[in-house]
Simulated assay, not measured.
Amino acid sequence: MIHQKVKEAINQYSEELTSLRRQLHSEPELSWQEENTTKFVCAYLEKLGISYRRTEPTGVIAEIKGGKPGKTVALRGDMDALSVQQLNKDLAYASKEEGKMHACGHDAHTAMLLIAAKALNEVKEELPGNVRLIFQPAEEVAEGAKALVEQGAVEGVDNVFGIHIWSQIPTHKVSCSPGPSFASADLFTVTFTGRGGHGAMPQDCIDAAIVASAFVMNVQPVISRTIDPQQPAVLTVGKMTVGTRFNVIAENAVIEGTVRCFDPSTRDHIETQLTHYADQVAALYGATAKVEYTRGTQAVINDEYSANLVQKVAAEAFGEEVVYHEKPTMGGEDFSFYLDEVPGSFALVGCGNPEKDTEWAHHHGRFNIDEDALATGAELYAQYAWAYLNE
């Protein structure tokens, strides 16, 4: 199941792998702005002699043609950064872009996939099938995967595999359990309209601030009292915009939030209840409500066969002790759009190490990774592709 030459190649290229990741980390680009990152990937693939095509407006799809006929497996790595200010500026490879940072590890994903491609390309004549390489933009806005699917990323693909570096589990550990992994992630906006007026004359007004506050303080029973407690779900109000001046009663209030869950019927129910609840709260005060509910990513549900194969590959490549079972997260991942098309799985590779200060949460300004985890991720990409094609 494990290709020894691939293992040796990943080990040989470990310093280059770290260098690639650091260069990408220092030059972050936001979603749909990954122009230089796209050029960087293309140049690297050209050097390896791997055929590729650019996707629009950014991103790359490449393919390693095996020397023998067989299936096609896709490997995906995302590459966009976040609008986060880097706080650990003492790092030699800290972001050069003010207010932009690779605070989620996508720099690592891109670097790992490039080195995995390099190792697989060296044994391509032995491959019974093809390896599709997907360097995806715009994961952070949940748009990139869907756009690349529309541009043919998984056409002719039999299986798809992705990795996310994960600071919440110890370095080198690999988690990929069958079933739910990441939750669906939806956005809602509620606009309440009352009747504004002078702050000294509330009897003539309908205070949108009061209406919105009542909604925020009381909306949680949609989760706690209307859905099965064995179906996990989260409803979070993250933003409220209300009022224009200290002595003016607000006419409008806008609330923004997110809903996360794993079950499609639970998702439908929450959307319906959210609208119903907003209407009823508004009616209670004589106001009106308008709800906009936008569905983002689907839940990431790992295929049983694929997830079990990841565990077997990890155990054989790194030892039984690396196999880890992380609980499903309410975080969202647009890898789900690939799984809507073909079976596959999404693994977490641990990079948390307190001795190296790499246990900060994803999206935090001090986020960093234990770079010892890079080789684990790169080899897992490559060995999974080899194992799947040889199954």
Rank of each mutant, 00 (worst) to 15 (best):
H172R: 15
E46L: 12
L133H: 02
V149R: 11
M330A: 09
Q12L: 14
L127I: 04
D204N: 15
L374R: 00
A145E: 08
F135E: 01
L380Q: 09
V322Q: 03
A314E: 08
R295A: 05
S83P: 15
V259M: 12
Q136F: 08
R225K: 15
R21G: 07
A315N: 10
Q273E: 15
S26M: 13
C261I: 01
P128T: 02
T171M: 08
L133Y: 02
E379M: 15
R366M: 14
H364Y: 13
G352T: 10
E333P: 08
S345Q: 01
G196T: 06
A250C: 06
S265W: 11
E355F: 05
N390M: 08
G156W: 05
F188V: 08
H106R: 07
M112K: 02
G99A: 11
V222T: 09
L148P: 00
S19P: 00
P128N: 04
D370A: 05
F246H: 14
D107F: 01
L30W: 06
R260E: 05
E326V: 01
V60R: 06
E15N: 14
G377F: 03
M330Y: 12
K312T: 15
A214P: 00
L235E: 00
M240R: 05
T226P: 03
H269F: 11
G129F: 00
G332H: 04
N88A: 13
T72K: 11
R76H: 11
L235C: 02
R260S: 08
L284G: 12
N247L: 07
Y338H: 07
A145Y: 06
A117D: 07
V237R: 04
V60K: 06
Q230V: 13
M330V: 10
Q23V: 08
A147T: 13
F192W: 06
G99E: 10
V322K: 07
A145P: 07
L389C: 09
P180W: 04
E46G: 13
E155I: 06
H362Y: 01
P343M: 03
Y384A: 00
A317M: 01
W166C: 05
K327R: 12
K7V: 14
A212Q: 09
Q203K: 10
A74W: 02
E34T: 13
W166R: 02
H198W: 09
H325I: 01
T58V: 14
G66M: 09
V60F: 09
N302G: 01
S345M: 05
N368E: 09
E321I: 04
T358Y: 04
A283S: 11
F335L: 00
K39T: 10
E333H: 11
T58R: 12
G179E: 02
L274Y: 03
K100I: 12
I134K: 06
H102F: 05
A209F: 05
G49Y: 09
C205A: 10
G99Y: 07
F135M: 02
E56Q: 14
M112H: 03
V222N: 06
V313P: 00
V349M: 01
D268F: 01
G199W: 12
K124T: 09
H109T: 10
D357Q: 10
E34L: 12
E371W: 13
L114Y: 06
A307I: 08
F161M: 03
M79N: 07
L114D: 02
Y324A: 08
V248E: 04
A183M: 10
D107T: 04
V160D: 05
C351G: 04
A145I: 10
L380C: 07
Y293N: 02
K100T: 13
